[in-house]
Structure formats: C-alpha cells, structure tokens
Design a protein around this nucleic acid. Structure first.
Lengths: 345, 345
DNA sequence: CAATAGCACTCTCGTTGTGAGAGTGCTAAC
DNA sequence: GTTAGCACTCTCACAACGAGAGTGCTATTG
C-alpha cells in the first residue's frame, strides 16, 4: 500500500491540508503558487493523476480540483497520529481548568465535552466511566415521606446511584436504618455475581431491599456506561456541508438517541486499549448516517476498573491536526483523574 | 383592536392555518378553491387587503400571497388558547407513559422533554422544579476512600444533592456517622436563613460540615432551577426556514448556554401563575436570537413550594394548535406529580 | 528520462434573457 | 356588498452563453 514517493507524500499532505481549511477542491495551479514547492503545475498535475489513480484523491467532476478521498484522509491521519502534540500552553490551560473545577464526575464530564468542542470546532461526546466490575460498598435508606424511601447506593469506585422506592406500607426510619446496617455488613465488597448466590434473608424488608439492590446493580452494569455529555452542536451547523446536504444532518440525529451513541462508542473502542486513538472516517462503510462525517474516539480510565469513552464528531474534513492531539490529551487527563479517584481504594 | 368582522376572522384563521402547514404564502385563489367558503377570490382579495392594512398579514413582495405577521400569529394564538384541548386518547397515552416510568425526577423530566418534542415537532425545554423555600431534611456522610467523603443531602421536597468532599485528614466512618446524626437532629426542617443564625458547633468536624451544607444549600437556591432537559433538536433542523436563513440557526445556540436558557424560562414566566401559558412570538422585540421563532412556555409545580418551567421552541409558524394543548397538558401532569411527591410531607 | 511548456478540451458557474404562472389592485357591472 | 374582468407586477424555472479554472496529452528541454 505504501508505495508513495516522498514527493507524492508531501503533495498529498498539502492538498488535504489546503482542502481542510478552504473546503474547496484544490487545483494544480493554486498549489504551485501558494506553497513554494519548486515544481510546475504540470508536474503537479502528473502526480495528482497518479494519486487519483491510487485512490487517495477524487475529482468531483472532470474539470475541478481534487478532493481527498476517504482513503486519502486515512493516510493523512495515520501520518498525523504519532507526531502531533498539543502545544504546552494549551495543555496547561486545559489542565488548569480541570484541577480548579469542583472534583465531581459530572463537572469533569461537562468540562471535557466543552474543551473538546471548543478545541476541535466539532461536536463532542463524552461517556461517563463505567465501573467494569461493580462492587457494592454502601447503601443508605432514607424515608422521605409516607411509603416512599430514597435509596442511595455507593459503589467501590465512587459511583453513586439513587432511586426512590415505594414500599407496600410505611416503615419508620429506625427500621430502615437497621436494615441498611445489616445489608451493609452483608454485602460490602460483593459483585453482582456473588450477591445472586446469597440465601434469602430472614427479615422480609431486608429481603425486599436486597432484591432491589441487586436489580439496580444489574441495571448499572447493563447499560455500558452512565450518562453521555455533549457539546458544540452549533459548531458544526455552520459548516458548508451541513447547510446544503441533509446527509450529515442525519448524523446529528444520533445525538438524540443515547442508546445508539452508546453503542457506537463502546463497539468501536471495545477492542482498543485505553490510550489508543481510533479515527472513523466516513462511517467506514458501516454507519450509514455518518457517511460524510468523521469521528475521533478514545477510551479513557483504568482498564479493568473503570473506563469510559470520549470523542469528537465533525465533517470529514475536520481539523484532525488539532482534534487528534486534543482527544488524546483529554483522554489522558481524564484517565489520571479517574485513577486518582479509584487508586486509594 | 378587535374590530374584525366575523368573516375577516375566519379568513384570517384559514390563512394562518394554511400557511402553517404549507409554509408558503397563501393567495386568494387558492383559498377560494381549497376551502369551501362561498366567496369569490375577488372578495377575498378585498378582505385580505383590509387585514394587511390592519397589520395581521404581510406580503413578501408585491405579487405573492399573504403571510401572517407576528400580530396575526398573536391573534391566532389568543383564539386558540382557551378552546383547544388535547384529544383524550393522546392524554391517556401520555399519562400512561408517566405513570409507568420509574418514579424519579430525572425520568420524568426526560420523558416530558421527549413527549413535548414529539407532539409539537419542535425543540422542547424542561427545567427541573426548583424548591422555592428549601428546607433541610437529612444528610449522610459516607467515607469513600482516604480523605474523600461523599455527602448526600436530602431536602424536604425530595430534592437530592450529592457532593464529594476532601477533608484535611482521614476520618473514620463512625465519626462521620456521629457527626451526621448530630447535624440531622439539629438542622431538620430548617431553611437557609434559619441555619445561618446558628451558633458555632463545639466539634470542629461538625462545624466544617455545617458550613459545607450551608454553602451547598445556597448553591441550590441560587441557581433558579436545577438541570435543563432538551429534546427534538432534529425536528426543527428540517424546517425550510432553518435550512436557508441562519437567523433561526442562531436560536439553537441558546441551547448550548444553559444560563441563557434558564434566564429566558424564569424571566418570562416569573410573573405568570402556574397553569397559565405564555406564548412568545418572534422574540417579542426583546430576544434578538429568537426573531424568527416562537416559544410556548408554562410554569408547573406547586406555587410556593416547588415550581419549574417547560416549553417548546419552534419556527414562528409552528403547529400551535397541537403545541399549546400539549404544553398545557404536560405542565398540568407534572404539577400533579410534583404535588404528589411533596404533599404528604 | 524526469521535468516542463504549450495547447486543445471539458466542465462549472454566474449572468442574462425570456416566458409562463400566480397574485394583486382597481374599475365597472350586477 | 359582491363579483367578473383586466392590466400590471413580480417571481421562478429554464435556456443560452461566455469566462474561468482545471485537466490530459504531447512535444520539447536540460
């Protein structure tokens, strides 16, 4: 595959770079003039023909400039992947924001989404970390009124789930506290699997709550990760390809279906390790709604403990050179934060 | 102002109705043919000229049909306001969804946003109810690791706030529980005001936590309502006025600035009672970004206890006849739910 | 033999012109 | 008061056309 001469390589890079910020087909003459390569337009034409032949470029119609093909972008990105680093000043600014925000998960998620969207000028998606082997830590039962009880569950990783239960009949706070205390002793450190093998509790209230806890933990394990945070929708609305075609507009529909989004994030990153970046260009033939878009995703967190995914969606000609390092950096940052949050346990 | 003859009235209604679902200027001939009024196109023209004179209609250019002006929409809406009711079957379907969902606030909010968006084909906004006189009920302190402590606070209305604290030094769960118990006894039922008059606690940990509780309750009171839920963005993206002009596109920017949205919701509904609907047409001269849009808002909840706001944003020619009853119905439904949730206290 | 200059060819795009169609306002007749 | 008729205006869709940009190919050059 990699039978490109050095000259073809730089040419291809230039073309893609130019197209990314002009959004218009780039021709041989323009290329020869704007960038000081010591080549005539004719030579460039020959090379361009070759690159087109090889599938890296495409021409919208006979006499227009060339436009990168998906293959072209892919090549471009693979070059970009290793080299690019976010400028130190930007790194500092971002870290600073994180460390001075309130140390809560949803603050971090929102911030991450915001940073990604601003830096990349695309739409950002951040999926909260999912504790992979959820272990029970603590439950609180708080009577709020009549028959309604607030149940707050804490997992070992710090994940919290709250739920309002409606009991068959009113129960005093004393009895609730006693039940909670007994269950805390019994369940501390257990996984869902371990819990399901327990024998029935003598006290019927204990038994009822136990079942609810089990059910809730299953629910948390089932949905791959918690919530999804998004930012930057308006960034992309202005792009030329979004105002004309309605192809890319369909892509935005994804953001209204959390389930689909979840699926996409987890599926595409499940086989990649934390720290590795994945770039999905033009839906890769699989995702029809993303035909004209690209997606840069990374998994973050502590493998085996808690991981989440985050990424940026944009037009196929998105500013990869900015997006890729940003995604990588934010993923690393969040990994650190998650790690700090878990490690002492 | 209301010097319209009966005939002008029906004509105006017909024109607006037609424009709402055709999105095209409506002419006298079309009107005479499609709807069986016993009038010739010439007569209709005369009436249309009169309506234009009075400011209810407008013509994009000399020889095109008429288009409703903002004033026209306003008239239309005021007629609609009282009469319209949601069909019973739809009412049942919606109620059903609510009563079979998990009885949690954020489930309800999400559902409300979804229902509003689907029914009205616009963008929905739902602001969680804000407990107006926040009263403390209960606090739990749970050691999660080292120096970090999870604080869960429950308010009388069932509102919950959780926060992770980092203490100066590790504290055992026993001591945390004791502190929580003491504070629960001390603070139960108090408002922020009442709390601030308390004298300092003897135990330094108690005192620290007390301050944090106070701070957190202030935070909850300050931000007018809790979170904002949104749905249906893609509904509106397809509308003709959104694909051409970028005026309305700016309106969507609002949804990325929770603060602005908050402001809009609270400001415009603060002087109206729960149950009353407000329709903002074309930004009413105040909101520049909403120039080409309309907004149907209602306040819901239990006045004096906990109220929130909800609404639908759409193009100026939105389906008011569906949106208005839906907004009213969902507001009433949420009011009931909030009421049920609070009343027994 | 790779690089280049030159040239004929192709395709898009913005402009201009034109005619059909839709809608209006006005006046005169019912 | 209502309507028929008519002249007028304006938009919109379509066609023609020329400028401009870009290409591929071939002959020439260092």
């Amino acid at each position: 595959m990699n039978h490109l001469t050095e000259r073809q390589k730089t040419l291809l890079m230039l073309i893609i770079r130019d197209y990314i910020d002009s959004a218009q087909p780039v021709g041989s003459k323009r290329l020869a003039e704007h960038y000081h390569i010591n080549l005539s337009s004719a030579t460039i034409r020959n090379e361009m023909a070759a690159l087109t032949e090889m599938g890296y470029l495409r021409q919208p119609h006979t006499s227009a400039g060339r436009v990168p093909s998906e293959e072209g972008y892919r090549y471009f990105v693979s070059e970009m992947m290793h080299s690019a680093e976010l400028p130190e000043t930007v790194q500092h600014t971002i870290s600073h924001q994180f460390y001075q925000s309130r140390p809560e998960l949803d603050q971090w998620m929102t911030l991450a989404a915001s940073v990604l969207a601003n830096q990349s000028q695309g739409v950002s998606v951040v999926a909260a970390p999912h504790v992979e082997t959820t272990k029970f830590k603590h439950v609180e039962l708080i009577s709020t009124q009549g028959r309604q009880v607030l149940m707050v569950m804490v997992m070992l990783g710090g994940e919290v789930s709250q739920q309002i239960l409606t009991l068959a009949e009113p129960v005093a706070q004393d009895r609730l506290s006693a039940t909670a205390a007994r269950l805390n002793g019994l369940l501390a450190g257990l996984t869902v699997q371990a819990m399901s093998t327990l024998t029935a509790r003598p006290d019927p209230l204990d038994q009822d709550i136990l079942l609810l806890i089990l059910q809730d933990m299953r629910r948390m394990t089932d949905k791959a990760s918690g919530e999804i945070y998004t930012d930057g929708l308006t960034n992309v609305l202005g792009e030329p390809e979004f105002s004309e075609l309605d192809g890319p507009r369909r892509a935005l529909k994804i953001f209204e279906e959390p389930a689909t989004l979840q699926d996409l994030l987890t599926k595409t990153t499940s086989n990649s390790n934390v720290g590795a970046l994945q770039v999905l260009i033009g839906g890769e033939g699989e995702y029809d709604d993303l035909r004209q878009c690209s997606l840069v995703i990374a998994r973050y967190g502590v493998p085996g403990m808690a991981t989440g995914a985050l990424g940026v969606l944009g037009p196929m000609r998105m500013a990869y050179s900015k997006t890729i390092p940003t995604v990588r950096f934010v993923a690393a940052l969040l990994s650190d934060l998650v790690n700090d949050n878990i490690s002492s346990e």
